[in-house]
């Protein structure tokens, strides 16, 4: 089998990629003890927008328009990049693959036992404290208990339009500008790290989901899936073991590319005052300061280069091992 195209950049691409990611991980872990000349998030007001390697200065990589040391921001930004952006990209891809894969596999033909459906509705009724909430609770308990017992007896089933729901949700997310999201969330307090991760995943799972769904439409009719079905395997197993791994192929390219988008989104949120607090360094924020100083190439080169290398490394690693010859 031939390798996917652009990963054979270097013969030992995989090793190099692993090495790069390990280096980043080490940087992130060791950042506080590294002998950096300047701490992060501390403006050196006497040196604003200093180019790198300026004579007589220990700002080796220069400073940004607010006087922060670029080197310190880059090193400490690694923590944010790995902890937030990469994590969000992984989670978003996983969520997208599961939802998109399920939607593409079952389309609108999935059925849920009626009793559990009613139980869920009852639970919702109770949670919203609508009139007669107690009755809702009873229905919920009864319904959920019933669904535990029901599958053996083929009860009446409720069709679940899974495909339509997933498609609708992706359409909704795609159509709502991020700024509206900000409008809605702006009144609330600044997001914690977990909340921020949640927002990032919430806004970015739709892309992978659509990709996987489209691929699943194709994979679902391939001979090997049909064969697995014909063997009488349960649909869930066919989906998980056979169809889904094949349908995730487009994600290999999309995942590293999505990282760049996530970094951008994270810095946009920070820019609007609802992302990371300004004292937390991040590559995205550093890239963003280039807005103030369009001629300061070093503000783009540093984080942009790191981002590019990370994307290439992830790309090399995301290739299936079987592709190696």
């Amino acid at each position: 089998m031939r390798a996917a195209p652009w990963v054979t950049l270097v013969p030992g691409a995989r090793t190099v990629a692993l090495g790069w990611l390990a280096l980043l991980g080490a940087l992130a872990l060791l950042a506080p003890v590294l002998p950096l000349p300047y701490p992060p998030a501390q403006p050196d007001l006497a040196h604003i927008s200093l180019p790198p390697f300026a004579a007589g200065s220990t700002h080796w990589l220069g400073t940004d328009p607010q006087g922060r040391d670029v080197l310190a921001e880059l090193v400490f930004g690694t923590r944010t990049a790995l902890g937030l952006s990469v994590a969000a990209a992984v989670l978003a891809s996983a969520a997208g693959a599961l939802l998109g894969g399920a939607a593409g596999f079952w389309r609108n033909r999935l059925r849920l036992p009626l009793v559990s459906g009613v139980g869920l509705l009852g639970g919702l009724w109770w949670a919203l404290a609508l009139p007669g909430a107690g009755a809702g609770l009873v229905v919920a308990v009864a319904g959920l208990a019933g669904s535990g017992w029901a599958p053996a007896r083929r009860p009446p089933r409720l069709p679940v339009p899974l495909d339509a729901v997933v498609l609708g949700a992706t359409a909704l997310l795609g159509a709502v500008p991020r700024l509206v999201l900000v409008v809605v969330l702006a009144g609330s307090v600044a997001l914690g790290p977990a909340g921020l991760l949640g927002v990032l995943v919430l806004t970015s799972w739709a892309g992978p989901a659509r990709l996987v769904r489209a691929e699943m439409l194709r994979v679902g009719v391939q001979p090997f899936v049909a064969a697995a079905r014909a063997l009488g395997l349960p649909p869930g197993r066919v989906w998980w073991r056979h169809a889904l791994p094949a349908a995730c192929a487009p994600l290999r390219t999309a995942f590293p590319l999505g990282l760049a988008g996530l970094l951008g989104l994270e810095s946009t949120l920070s820019f609007l005052g609802m992302g990371l607090p300004p004292e937390v360094p991040s590559w995205g924020r550093l890239l963003n300061t280039a807005r103030l100083e369009p001629t300061a190439w070093w503000l783009v080169a540093g984080p942009g280069g790191l981002l590019l290398l990370t994307m290439l490394a992830l790309q090399a690693l995301s290739r299936p091992a079987s592709a190696h010859k």
Binding site: P5, W6, L9, P256, L257, A260, G264, L287, N288, A290, R291, P294, V300, G304, L307, L308, M311, L312, Q315
Partner: peptide, 21 residues
Amino acid sequence: RRPALVLLAGLQALPLFVLAT
């Protein structure tokens, strides 16, 4: 092919506003 692929990935890593300005 290789330089072209790296160039494309680099373009993707570049924020749009940097490209535009």
